[in-house]
């Protein structure tokens, strides 16, 4: 019973940590066909923005959190103007953009090292307390993270399904040419997707750094895990990404508990390798339509 609770609690907090990041990754992949390797750096930007505002300006933690969303908005727009805008028409876009965003990530992370040093910082948006469940403490922070991830997911679903701009995003994702023929300005939609992803990434970065120590490279592991989650969910499938975050969180916790912490992450990687070999487009994924 204790084992179950330990795994349940730690898996839940891991899943809550990765859910928002996975949604941001999945959204950008699904609508632009872009594997955003700079997502890890964008998580770090969100975390540091909240930290810097609360630390250097006299603002409360919640204002720091909200302002970091604004910073994420700008980061998404900048990433669009530096890479996507110039590249999306190129036939090898899907692979070139991976390399371009790795380059951007390296630039951002090293700039963060320059500004904030590589030493770990403490996220002001942090709740230390927890609630005792049997012999296991469920941290409030995990529940807060879970709640915020859920809210992000619901707002995004509403936005995509119920608004004109959201429907346009879905239309562009399904058929870029057909959407253009309806008068949808594709570049504007791409920019919109990038800023939404930037805001979600910033929020996710704040939540993440409330749980693990904040360093400029804090986004590396979450990025890789978000990849794993999205591949298993099928890149572009948002609800599946949300669910898969928790499934994989529990998977990682179970492996760590049973076989030792060092096998948790490698087990996830092996899982994704198996999934890719078995289903090249993810478990719930569908082949992206290739146009000629």
């Amino acid at each position: 019973m204790t084992a179950f609770l330990v795994i349940f609690e730690s898996g839940l907090s891991l899943g809550a940590m990765y859910a928002a990041a996975s949604i941001a990754l999945s959204l950008v992949w699904g609508s632009i066909g872009m594997l955003n390797m700079a997502l890890g750096a964008m998580l770090a930007i969100g975390g540091y923005a909240s930290f810097a505002l609360v630390e250097y300006l006299p603002v409360p933690w919640w204002l720091g959190f909200l302002a970091s969303l604004g910073v994420g908005f700008i980061a998404g727009a900048v990433l669009y103007y530096v890479t996507v805008k110039w590249m999306y028409r190129v036939p090898t876009f899907d692979t070139s953009i991976v390399i371009a965003t790795v380059g951007v990530a390296i630039v951002i992370e090293n700039l963060l090292v320059k500004i904030f040093t590589a030493y770990a910082k403490k996220q002001p948006f942090l709740v230390d307390d927890g609630i005792l469940m049997g012999s296991v403490t469920m941290r409030y922070q995990s529940l807060i993270n879970l709640g915020i991830a859920l809210v992000i997911m619901l707002i995004l679903s509403w936005y995509l399904n119920r608004t004109r701009a959201g429907t346009a995003i879905l239309a562009v994702a399904q058929d870029r040419d057909a959407a253009q023929l309806m008068g949808v300005p594709v570049e504007r939609i791409f920019l919109l997707v990038m800023v939404i992803a930037g805001v979600i990434a910033a929020a996710s970065g704040v939540l993440l750094t409330a749980v693990i120590p904040m360093s400029p490279y804090v986004g590396h592991e979450p990025l890789l895990k978000a990849f794993i989650i999205c591949v298993i969910a099928g890149l572009g499938n948002l609800p599946a990404a949300f669910v898969a975050s928790f499934v994989l969180g529990w998977f990682e916790s179970a492996v760590s508990y049973g076989a030792g912490a060092r096998y948790g992450f490698p087990a996830m990687l092996v899982l994704v390798i198996i999934v890719l070999l078995w289903k090249p487009y993810g478990v719930f994924g569908r082949r992206r339509v290739t146009r000629v």
Binding site: T167, A168, L170, Q174
Partner: peptide
């Protein structure tokens, strides 16, 4: 456009409203 250039993962109604974007 020719053939299948409709938004297959949207409802018929949403396809039509996209036409009036």
């Amino acid at each position: 456009p020719q053939g299948d250039l409709i938004f297959t993962e949207l409802t018929v109604l949403k396809n039509l409203t996209m036409g009036a974007y």
